[in-house]
Amino acid sequence: MRKIFGTIALIFLTAAAPALAQPGFQTEASHAVIMDYETGEVLFNHNGDEAMPPASMSKMMTVLMVLEALEAGSLSLDDELPVSVHAWRTGGAASGSSTMFLEVNSRARVEDLLHGVIIQSGNDACIVLAEAIGGSESAFADMMTDRAHELGLTSASFANATGWPDPGQMISARDLAELARILIRDHPDYYGLWSEREFTYNGIRQYNRNPLLGVFSGADGLKTGHTEDSGYGLVGSAERDGERRIIVFNGMPSNADRATEAERMMRAALSDYGVYHLFSDGDAVDHRAEVFMGEADSIGLQVQGDVTAGLHRRSRRDLRVTVNYDGPLVAPIAAGDVVGTLRVEAPDYETHEYPLVATEDVARKGLMGRIGAALAHMIRG
């Protein structure tokens, strides 16, 4: 059977679009993703599906596990948890790493520990929470991995609760962006913690390391990360005029470079990229599929699921939407049968395909009709 291609004109997208003169956003980060929060569309992807060491950005998964325990009732904000020797030695003042400065053999409230993880990036706070939920940090890390996979974050593997360098601590930029989206969408009551600028514990004031906060209007999260292996990275989110974008990047050479890139990427995310609605679930497309051996010669097609395209505004002019099916379709066909795909393509855009279903039933011709159709088909070649 031959492949049928029908191009759908999208004049409403191309009328005022500028010519595509150069590629969209570019970055010196080793890994980067820009995601639209509302749709989950990836607007920009640079090695974004490649697993990378996330450093402290993996603390987002630690926080998610804590929030789910709170909502399940197995933990409460007022619970006071013990600070073990392991938590103090591995993540406390003695470790020389990011710390909340918890004292060994003391106890700390879960609410304070959450602040310590989110604002201060305290490794000791992460371990205390991990031990309370999982029994040990390693067991908690296994729980993190299992839960991430349940959520569809298939690139994720965790060896600890902190992001400390380990060959088993890996996740892609795309999955970090999706993790941020989950935290924002599913835990709105706690999301405000990510934008708090400072937190004081045991008389020690520490400041949120997110370079977007207080600098980029609308920025309200989420997490920085840095190790020698990963470089400097960020998961950031900001909302303007009802649109929210999530950015993830890693591998910048310095703290100053991270701050510069964070602002540059977020500005591009909100100014240079758009999400364009093409079809709603059930919309008919402007193309009918040819039918063979049917009581009707053609059949209508409709989209299954909403169809959007998130792309650089320069790429709108070159957006191409095609109907694809192996045709002619052979009767009988039932309304609702998947008979083809709608393909959306554009420069610097990940090609997407959506199912197309038949809009009506087409019965098979009777015997004489089938004979006539076969003869006509032979004559036409």
Rank of each mutant, 00 (worst) to 15 (best):
Q120L: 13
C126I: 03
L193A: 01
V66H: 06
A125L: 09
D112E: 14
D281I: 01
G340C: 08
G203P: 05
V215G: 00
P188G: 11
I133F: 06
N160P: 07
D257Q: 11
M378L: 15
S195Y: 06
P167G: 01
I299S: 02
I299A: 07
D281Q: 01
R316V: 02
L222Y: 03
T90K: 14
L193M: 15
K59P: 02
V235H: 01
M61D: 03
G214I: 12
A268M: 08
G96Y: 11
G221E: 11
E41A: 12
V303T: 15
T90Q: 14
L319D: 07
A335S: 14
G340V: 05
P355G: 04
S136K: 09
S298A: 15
W88R: 01
A19L: 09
V330T: 15
D241W: 02
R181E: 02
A262R: 07
D326Q: 13
L153A: 08
E111K: 13
N105R: 14
R313D: 13
D36H: 00
L270W: 10
S76C: 04
H352C: 07
M293E: 12
E345R: 13
S237V: 10
I333R: 04
D36W: 00
L234E: 07
R364K: 15
W194L: 07
D281R: 05
E196S: 03
A335T: 02
N210I: 10
S30G: 12
G48H: 02
A9Y: 10
T322F: 02
L213I: 14
V248H: 07
R264D: 06
E360T: 06
A346I: 11
I247D: 05
Y354T: 05
T200I: 04
I204W: 10
F199G: 09
Q26L: 10
M100T: 14
Y325M: 08
A17M: 05
V63P: 09
P332K: 06
G366Y: 12
L356F: 03
V307G: 00
T224L: 04
L329I: 06
N45A: 12
A363G: 11
T7C: 02
E41Q: 12
V321F: 06
V85N: 06
R240Q: 15
E350F: 01
P355W: 08
I182N: 11
R288S: 13
P253S: 04
A269Y: 09
A15V: 08
A374L: 15
Y273R: 07
A335D: 01
G203A: 12
A32E: 00
A331S: 10
M378K: 13
D146Q: 14
A19N: 11
L102E: 02
L70S: 09
T14H: 15
G310D: 04
S106V: 05
S298H: 08
R245L: 02
G134C: 10
M144R: 00
L64P: 05
T200K: 07
D79A: 14
A358G: 05
